[in-house]
Amino acid sequence: MTSVGYIVKATIDALRVAARNFVKPERITVYYPYEKLEYVRMRGWIGLWTEKCTSCMLCARICPTNAIKMYPAPNAKRYPGVDYGRCIMCHFCIDICPADALYPTDIKELAWYNYREMIYTPDMEREPPKVEETYKYVKVSIKYENGIPRKIETVK
């Protein structure tokens, strides 16, 4: 009858663990639009300083998804524009740029109404896009205290 003993004991044990978690929840939920998780690093939207760009086209060539198109400019140069419908935020283009003309940002909350708006021309790449903050938010991050993850507000 060891198996009956095991069944009863293990059932009670499982219920006990669940009850302990019920009494002392270890929540890690982030209420997204009101709280935003702060990652230390985040690869996001790609900016361009056109004045630094030498039109070497390396960025367009290394892009794994062919997201970069070179747009002719009035000064007979060509500048890159990113199609964010294709971009996978690998930041290869930034890594390859010999003139540091492309710069990384951590803007990752990008959404558009239609696909045409996703195609950024060099002019649009100059300024980071305006992210509409519909809600006031606080930045939070997750820290471990006594081995339990805690969500804490980080002061800006």
Binding site: A18, F22, P25, E26, R27, I28, Y31
Partner: peptide
């Protein structure tokens, strides 16, 4: 709510 409490989340809110 109970399931959410056990499961590290918040549930309906």
């Amino acid at each position: 709510k109970a399931a959410a409490r056990v499961q590290m989340r918040v549930g309906p809110y």
